[in-house]
């Protein structure tokens, strides 16, 4: 998993909770990397699971809620770090529908080793968008947070429905509908 996810996660912990808590999460978890993350590095994705579990234990907030909150936080960071992906994009569905064919393609150019989730996009008209998430990392919650924040970012009246298509959470369908 790309280091940016870890760096941003710890940033979030420092901002939302405290720098000490971030230290504690690292010190209390047995991380192969020792927690010395850099945004451009690549680390085992189980480390993020370990960190999130630790945060959940420390804060008493359920894991899914934490991951969704992180997704929302991460969207804001993406917007700051990669403004070029938002250029010429008029609305939320437009933006999300480009995830697979535009954004992930560019990310792959920058980081050829990056393992990205796959989205099946169905964008039949300007008011409906169906995104089916596939990933063996089971981070549907992260995707949900990202999508949710994307809707907020564009300040649009869109309802988001989520349906897990399997028990493990490897396949999740998100249905976005613009409010009439």
């Amino acid at each position: 998993m790309k280091g940016i996810v870890f760096v941003e996660f710890l940033e979030m912990v420092e901002q939302q909770f405290s720098a000490d808590l971030a230290d504690d999460l690292i010190d209390n978890s047995d991380l192969p990397s020792g927690g010395a993350y850099t945004a451009v590095g690549t680390y085992d994705h189980t480390e993020i699971v370990t960190l999130v579990l630790a945060l959940s234990q420390e804060s008493g907030i359920p894991v899914p809620d934490l991951i969704k909150a992180f997704g929302e936080y991460l969207f804001g960071r993406f917007f700051e770090l990669y403004p070029s992906f938002f250029e010429g994009v008029s609305d939320c569905m437009d933006f999300l529908s480009r995830i697979e064919d535009v954004i992930h393609v560019e990310v792959k150019k920058l980081y050829p080793s990056a393992q990205l989730p796959k989205f099946d996009i169905d964008y039949p008209d300007r008011d409906h968008l169906v995104m089916v998430y596939h990933s063996d990392r089971h981070l549907g919650d992260l995707a949900e947070g990202l999508i949710q924040q994307s809707i907020k970012h564009f300040k649009e009246q869109i309802t988001l429905e989520r349906e897990n298509l399997d028990e493990e959470g490897a396949t999740v369908r998100f249905t976005l509908t613009r409010a009439a």
């Binding site: 000490d20 230290d23 690292i26 010190d27 020792g34 927690g35 010395a36 850099t38 451009v40």
Partner: peptide
């Protein structure tokens, strides 16, 4: 001690970043 560990982590992260940068 916590600050020292934090510094160690940051230093290691920086070196790792520099190594990756050099590699890139």
């Amino acid at each position: 001690a916590r600050l020292q560990r934090r510094l160690d982590r940051v230093t290691r992260a920086r070196k790792e970043a520099e190594r990756l940068l050099e590699e890139k």
